[in-house]
Design a protein around this nucleic acid. Sequence first.
DNA 1: ATTGCAATAGCCCAATCAGGTCATTTTTCA
DNA 2: TGAAAAATGACCTGATTGGGCTATTGCAAT
Lengths: 209, 209
Amino acid sequence: MTITIGLVEDHLEFRKSLEYLISSFTDYTVAWSYASVEETIDNYSETDVILLDINLPGLSGLEAIPLFKKKCASQKIIMLTILEDDYHILEAIKNGANGYILKKSSPNKILEAIQQVYDGEAALTPMVARQVMAFLKPVPAQTASPSLLTLREREILTLIAHGMTNEAIAVTLFISVQTVRNHIKNIYDKLQVHSRAQVVVKAFNDKLI
Amino acid sequence: MTITIGLVEDHLEFRKSLEYLISSFTDYTVAWSYASVEETIDNYSETDVILLDINLPGLSGLEAIPLFKKKCASQKIIMLTILEDDYHILEAIKNGANGYILKKSSPNKILEAIQQVYDGEAALTPMVARQVMAFLKPVPAQTASPSLLTLREREILTLIAHGMTNEAIAVTLFISVQTVRNHIKNIYDKLQVHSRAQVVVKAFNDKLI
DNA sequence: ATTGCAATAGCCCAATCAGGTCATTTTTCA
DNA sequence: TGAAAAATGACCTGATTGGGCTATTGCAAT
């Protein structure tokens, strides 16, 4: 059972060396390789993974992601690019890329990324991971609104708003369901509501979430 | 120049095997290792990287992150845990962790993560990367578009999001509770949720309200 | 030292909800 | 006109929630 790979890369030399690299392993096969998105779409067939450059003549790799996903919803795509600014990284992720690795990665890392994405996981080079994490980290939070909820209560409120049941919340926070219940009762009292649906509405309206 | 490492891990056996693993490389040194956050804080000294468990007696690893960062703002921290739900992952990142890897990772991957974080990059195991990326990816706007809900369903969705019970909705719309139930079941199917709390969240996120 | 609050945990009971299956009527539209 | 979709209604069962209690622990401030 070999993993099939599609390549979209306009730099001929790099593309050839990728093909050479991949073909040197019996577990991996290059199903096709093209120099542009347009060309690829015309001749597209599903592969286990597509390695997709971003900076391409015509349509960019970012614009190509939804096109491939439309052709085949489960198509796995790894961005393989020199671009490591957070704009391109985030756009790729938002568009549904399954991995984002840099061309300067070692051949080994590229193969590893393919394997990971093939396995249903995701592949980010450490540099990209750092930027993604920096993006998720909020600016030092200031509590302008002195909430009447305690820390724990707000924590639980967040989990409720994620649609979790009391049981799930208990497991997540390592406390008993009874305790979760009690916190929720207190939240209801303070916010003057009587159901989780209401509490979610209030959380959104009061921007507690 | 060796990389110094601190360990916070309550499972003695696992901690010892980590120490053994790390010490077997001349480039890495275990500067200290403790079984709890409290113990660590009392005896803290800066290391290049801290490997930090989450589920610990007393203070959790998540709560420990800001404490370490306060002691030393540049302290690098890698979460090393069995927990792979997005709540813990995102909380860790929000709190400022520099890496998040799973205990089931191979020794090789753990060492690699240490090196990456030491180099000022970040380390996410592929499974964690997948969840982080999923979090950044907006809900497919066309899949969850209001148009897949019928008029009546959207009407009922709105009332749910106002915190009404099925009974109240039935009275409001002059229909039976059974019918309300049926509509809600269809809404759940279409939006792929399983509770009113979730449906309210979805309604807000998809700007249906 | 005592008071107060937060967090933890338990019990009971009734109300509500979620999921499954089925059936009838009306509307839409190809 | 006939098929498909939408809206209506029902039954049953088990899971979950909401509300009313009590109680212990730890911490912080008075």
